[in-house]
Amino acid sequence: MLPACGDNMAAPVRIILEFGGGAELLFDGMKKHHVTLAGQEQPWDIKQLLVWIQRNLLKERPELFVQGDSVRPGILVLINDADWELMGELEYQLQDQDNIVFISTLHGG
């Protein structure tokens, strides 16, 4: 018999990450990323996702994206087309197939 995963091991989470309003320029200009987060004991939350993004996607100049353990001022986070403020911000627990958008506010005209 194959060794089973630990009982309290959560399944991997597949999410769609999007960057817009210029934030995509920090990620080689790629607006959409299909991402699978490995299964872990605790469910994934946005705080951990930010760390994951820094380690895996963000190569240069992290100060243009994060500040402390949150996003820098001027970046809006959207969880399934809603302002993250309505969803629990950093504590929001990621569900399979979630759509997380990081949008930089534009200042042109």
């Binding site: 210029g22 001022p73 200042h107 042109g108």
Partner: peptide, 20 residues
């Protein structure tokens, strides 16, 4: 309400930098 803290100046791109 949305942006209580202004963005760091170096993160702001305008039309003459970014194009439109």
């Amino acid at each position: 309400c949305l942006y209580p803290v202004p963005p760091p100046p170096e993160t702001v791109t305008n039309c003459s930098d970014g194009g439109v």
